[in-house]
């Protein structure tokens, strides 16, 4: 599958990563190599194989609908880059 600089730009945008023009060639080359390694698996016919999402053949456990957490806002917001009036601040959100 073709992977070029345009793809890198598209994917970097999806992943919210900034890749400078200087880096772009190197990154594209590296990713191409990795994709070549990955593409080895295309050699096997897996039409009749069911995907395995998880090594555990188990089902989801459920939690009782009980409140177990208490308000730790002030402590947890110590970790934040910027807060005001109990809110996390970010550059203006434009919808």
């Amino acid at each position: 599958m073709a992977f070029d600089k345009t793809e890198v730009e598209k994917v970097a945008q999806l992943a919210r990563l900034h890749i400078s023009d200087i880096e772009k060639d190197e990154v594209t080359g590296r990713i191409k190599d990795i994709l070549a390694l990955i593409d080895e698996m295309q050699s096997v016919d897996t039409d009749a194989v069911a995907p395995l999402a998880h090594p555990l053949d188990m089902t989801q456990r459920l939690r009782e609908d009980d409140v177990t957490e208490s308000n730790r806002r002030d402590e947890l917001q110590q970790l934040a880059p910027e807060v005001e009036a109990g809110l996390y601040l970010v550059p203006k959100v434009i919808e």
Partner: peptide, 13 residues
């Protein structure tokens, strides 16, 4: 880390 994020994002796109 960035390389792997790009590969993973690409693989799911």
């Amino acid at each position: 880390v960035k390389r792997r994020i790009i590969v993973g994002t690409y693989a799911l796109s």
